[in-house]
Amino acid sequence: MSGNGENMKSGRLDVRKTYKMLIGGAFVRSESGRALDVNAPGGKWLGHVCRASRKDFRNAVVAARKAASGWSNTTPYLKGQILYRAAEMLEGRATTFREVLQSIGLSPAAAKTEVTQAIDLLVYYAGWADKYLQVFGSVNPVSSPYFNFSVTEPMGVVAYVAGEKRPLLDLVSGIAPIVAGGNTVITLSTGRAAVAAMELGEVLATSDFPHGVINLLCGLREELVGQMATHMDVNALVTQGADAKESAASREACALNLKRFFPREANGKGDEDPYRILDTVEIKTTWHPVGG
């Protein structure tokens, strides 16, 4: 966040940015009209972000479900290109992102690392989009006259709760494997990380992702994780940095529709890992007779 007054010297008042969430390709405020303050680590007030409501989440699920079929049927090559395009767009805005990250308390060095890692991570998963099936699929040598093979298929709609420690990287490292796997995603960013998330929305919106494939919410973790875990039209929940209580509650709530649940630690390990793609895909096995 920037534009809090230094430029007063020039006698011109800055035009501040209103951060909006990304739902179904549209930039929206929370339908609830609520906002949250974002403060720098020292306590300095930086501005507002939306406080997403249950209904915002529900709307995001509808958008994500609508986009799911199209995205899952997008060719792997094109998925890779779109992820790569996101990397390109982020690279083009690297300076801005560094400034944003610094404004919410990252050191210049940390901000730089985070932005470059996020860009490289997008490139990394862009490359996996048309390869993981080859690595993780299989042809199975059954002992009967059948051609039998197992492929990956996206689970559908995935909810992702990002940690705050690495405001940009925690989000990108969650989104990239989920969408590379052909799922659509609804993310929740909280605290100061919400600022980076909303900024990322502007990158994603210009990087050829079809509307609804990536939906970015920001708000309160305790308000929305439970909704994500119980929603009957969400196929998987991935969380980062949950405490024991939240994880236990999520695992229990996910039992409602046997939503797949993957709690990940917020230790920054394993960002580059194709097995993360495997978390949110199903294995489908097909039997086909071999005869004349």
């Binding site: 299989s138 199975n140 040598p141 059954v142 002992s143 009967s144 059948y146 039998n148 197992s150 294995i283 096995t285 039997w287």
Partner: peptide, 9 residues
Amino acid sequence: KFDPSSPFG
């Protein structure tokens, strides 16, 4: 049809 080499689930 079932086979030990064929994933099921």
